[in-house]
Amino acid sequence: MIWKVFLYFFILAVSIMGIAFPIVENPIHWNEYPYIPALGENAKIIFFHVPTAWLASIAFLMSAYFGIKYLKNKTLVDDIKSYTAAQLGLVFCVLATITGAVWANYTWGKPWSWDPRQTSIFALMLIYGAYFALRSAIEDSEKKAVLSAVYSLIAFVTVPFFVFIIPKMVNSLHPGSAGDPSPIGFKMNPNMKIEFFLSLTAFSILFYWLWSIGYRSLILKEKNNNLL
């Protein structure tokens, strides 16, 4: 209970700090963010877009990790954990795409332009979609667990191509890409960095909380059906 209240206030504080603190040319006070050329006020999306994108990839990693664990031990609990991570991953993937599209609409002039980063998040969404389509096509729960674990691992092999190789090959306009002259980290001042990492922590805790509730409720459901 105390943790839930803490998380509530943590996320509330992070959101207010992210939205309300002003962006000024020469930040002096603790609550001012620096002006970044070409981004301006749009830079504030970093407090919400990056955590969601980060969690979308972490969820994918967790799904693959529990997939490996399932293939090793064949305990259905691991499959449930992997499945819950994938469910949350899809939610955060959609959130990251939407926040990114809103940002792109104001910075690039249109919401979608097949920038390499947009292509990669689109592919990640397709992988999640295919994963759920595969799961719904199989009746037997053990077969479902094995095949979806194998699929998520095969999909995991393609991740380095999307994350490291293709954005470096094709010029991307996304901040922090190879074409960007100075990485975003150098343009953030200390209080912007603190707020950024606080936001990342807050969203990660939120994710962990949702994930543990999700998988525990699924385990109870399975126990109720006498499958476990």
Binding site: L126, A130, A133, T158
Partner: peptide
């Protein structure tokens, strides 16, 4: 095709 497309995309 649904399963293959994201894997073949890169």
């Amino acid at each position: 095709p649904v399963l293959s497309f994201p894997i073949l995309l890169p």
